[in-house]
Every structure is written in structure tokens, then in C-alpha cells.
Design a protein around this nucleic acid. Structure first.
Lengths: 230, 230
DNA sequence: ACCTGAACACCGTTCAAGT
DNA sequence: ACCTGAACACCGTTCAAGT
């Protein structure tokens, strides 16, 4: 068979299969030949839909970012000259911590569902539309909440540091469950570390929530100082 | 030539060359054949010193972690039953935020010097001695400063999230310097984003410092609450 | 336009052979 | 013990050929 009447592949089908492969077997398991086999086509077929493997990865990454909820940024993310906010900084100012909290949780959930692709995604938005939309929404909301532009940039960055770091890999699962690893002579305080992996979910969730609330508290202190000396 | 009188390779030489290659050309550029060429030997020679490529990567990662300063954790990291601290939690309690600050800066500096290897390193300590020593020192210091063990674990985790996230990739450099990318219709607040890459160093440094201080402030609030209700 | 097989320059790793 | 070349089963990508 050469060209079929209805195409065997589509960008969507390829992206979905690639993400599944990455999730199940890791980034290294994604080869164009393996992916093609998974899709019951020959290797070079993929090049009718993506110029390179990197282009394909970009599409996979942006599909993951597209899962992040941005609705909490409301008017700030959508049309600019909207009803309530209207230029002034005072009225909606109090809402930013809750918006940031909701967004961070959704952001982390989307990434943590696909940890193997986080290293790619962490390289920045590049030219990927969903990633740029996300950056735009966060920055816009912070500025319209009264944060100076320079501070808003830094907050967008530091939130991304924290969220990507937390989704990149499980902290708890990084400690071998084998108790023999933790020789008391070398690591006097890690006597219980072999239990961490077993509590993977709660440890990582607890660390994320503690860090998120600590960050928001720390930022609220700085926000209050903005009003004091304008 | 088969076996030379003095070995051509050593683990140290291989690790150093591998790290240089990763730094200069990225993780994908590290192939055993390419690395062997760089070291003027044939590909399979490396297998006399490392069982697999993953083993070699482990050694590279641990050499990077070995650069992190842990001296601020002082007695807590070294011998346990030392002079001053002596079991009680009150006296040295106030020192933990400064120790955490100094450590986080050294940790980030060590990782940010080799961003291309951070994804590997973020998988956790595994069985790498320097990574386990680091985890031991942080956890031990927090516990001896009066933090409950569960909280100390979470703080170790969240600090690692933040530091690895900040070292994984430059936030600023992730935004293309090409102004055409930021169509005002799609991204109304990113009109200046094309300048970010040019201020890479200051943006990332500022975001890291802001996030670090916010985290420490937030944690200090929680530490104060520990004393209130014991 | 969209698929195929053949081909090119790569990979990680094993293994027998050399000293 | 430590290096080599040959070999195996893989890669990403190009390209001419098919419909």
C-alpha cells in the first residue's frame, strides 16, 4: 500500500500515542520507529505530519500545558478593557492569592500526570501557543492585581520553578525502599528514609501544599509592603 | 595496541569529560562513542570502568552534587553527639533559616552551573552517596532545630522542588527574543516578553531570591506556630 | 497528499582477541 | 586488568517510488 484513501495518521493521533508511550515507558522509549510501530505504520510516515521528532515533542508538550486551568484569571486573561477591573489596581487586588493557589494546583496536576515530559516542558514556552497563553494569563492577572511588572515577572518565574520542580519527579520515590542503603554511620538521620517511597503520594502532596502556602504567605507580606510605600 | 602499561582511562577522567560534553552540547550529545572519541579511545573501552551508560551518568550527577556546600549544617551534619547542640531544641533553633538560605544558594549555584544534567539529578538521591549525604544533612539540621520529623521531610522536599525547578532551565531564556512571536491579539500582556532573554541572569536571579525569601518567611510563620501550640 | 522500503550515519552493548 | 575491532539490534532522517 502507498497512499490510502483516508489518511492512516493525524497529528492528534500521533501526539496521543507519543504521550502514552512517554508516560508508560519514559522519554527514552519514544523513538520514531517505535511510535510508528505502535501506530501500525512505517517509521518515515511520521514525517508527513511533523518535520522532526523535536516538532512532535513540542506538540506533545503543548497538549499537556493545554490541560492547565486558567479560568481563575478570569477577565484578566481574556479581554483587557473588561467590566470590573477597569485599569485601577485596588478593587480586585485581594483575589490574586486564591487565583495563584488554584492555578498552581491545576498546573501541578497537569504536569504530575506526565512527569516524564516535564524536563522538555521546563525549557520554557518557546513558540508553543498554550504555554504562551499560560504565561500571558498569569502575568496579566498579577499586574492587574497591582503588582509592579518586574515583580509580576519574578512571581511568574518562581511559581514555575516550584511547580515544575514538584512535578519533575517524586521526592519520596527518589529514596530507595531498601533499608540497607541507609548505613547509620554514613547517614545518621536517614534511618526511616526507606519508608518514604511507600508514602509517595502523601509526602509529595504534603510538601507541595506546604511549599505553596509558605510561598503565598511570603508573597502576601511583600504585597502588603507595596501599599505601605508607594 | 591492546592493554597499555599505564591505563589510558580512569573513572575521574571519564566523568570530567562527560560533564564537559553535557554542559557544552546537552544531554543528548553524550553518547558512549562520542565520549570515547573525546578521550581518544574506542567506544567499548568505557565498559571497563562503568557497567552501563546509566552508571556513568550516576557518577556525573554525584560529582555535581558533591559541589554543594553543607558546612552551614555544622554539627548537625557531622558527628551527632557534638558540643553545643546536645539534644535540646531551643538554643540553636533560630539558626535554621540562615542555614537553609545559604544551602539553597549553594545548591542552586552547583546545579545552575550544569543545567543540562538537572533532569537526571532531580530523579532523587537513589544510591548516590553525595545526594544521600545532602538529604541527611538538611533533614538532620531541621529536626535538631525543633521541626517535627514529618515537617522536616516536607521542607527538604519543597526546597528541592524549588531549587531544581530554578536550575532546570532559565525562565527568561525560555521566551524567544523575536518580538513577532507575541501577537497582541493572542497574548495581550506579553508585549515586552521578547526582552526577557536579554536579561536572563538578573531575571532568574531575582526570581530565585524572591522565591527563596518568600519561602523562608512562610516557613518562619509556621515555625512560630509550633511554639504556640506544643 | 500520504504512505512505503532502502539507505545513511549514527546509537548502547557484548564478546572474542590481544598484551 | 584494560584496550581493540567486529558484530548485533537499535536510532533519526532522507529520498525515490508508489498511488
Amino acid at each position: 500500500m502507498a497512499r490510502p484513501r483516508t489518511p492512516l495518521l493525524s497529528r492528534e493521533r500521533i501526539v496521543a500515542a507519543a504521550l502514552r508511550l512517554i508516560d508508560d515507558e519514559g522519554l527514552d522509549a519514544l523513538s520514531t520507529r517505535r511510535l510508528a510501530t505502535e501506530l501500525s505504520v512505517s517509521g518515515p510516515s511520521l514525517y508527513n505530519h511533523f518535520a522532526t521528532k523535536d516538532d512532535l515533542l513540542d506538540a506533545v508538550v503543548d497538549s499537556v500545558i493545554g490541560e492547565v486551568d486558567l479560568s481563575m484569571f478570569g477577565a484578566a486573561a481574556g479581554a483587557v478593557g473588561d467590566a470590573g477591573a477597569a485599569g485601577s489596581t485596588g478593587s480586585t487586588g485581594g483575589a490574586w492569592p486564591q487565583a495563584l493557589r488554584d492555578w498552581a494546583r491545576s498546573y501541578r496536576a497537569a504536569l504530575a500526570a506526565h512527569p516524564n515530559i516535564v524536563p522538555v516542558l521546563a525549557q520554557g514556552p518557546g513558540r508553543r501557543p498554550n504555554a504562551l497563553r499560560l504565561a500571558d494569563a498569569v502575568f496579566g492577572h498579577l499586574v492587574e492585581s497591582g503588582w509592579p511588572r518586574g515583580q509580576a515577572t519574578r512571581i511568574g518565574a518562581l511559581m514555575r520553578y516550584f511547580v515544575t520542580g514538584s512535578a519533575l519527579a517524586s521526592f519520596a520515590a527518589g529514596f530507595p525502599a531498601d533499608a540497607e542503603v541507609y548505613d547509620a554511620a554514613d547517614y545518621p538521620h536517614l534511618g526511616e528514609a526507606h519508608r518514604l517511597a511507600g508514602h509517595r503520594g502523601t509526602v509529595d502532596e504534603g510538601a507541595f501544599e506546604t511549599g505553596l502556602e509558605a510561598l503565598l504567605d511570603g508573597l502576601a507580606l511583600r504585597y502588603a509592603r507595596l501599599a505601605e510605600r508607594p
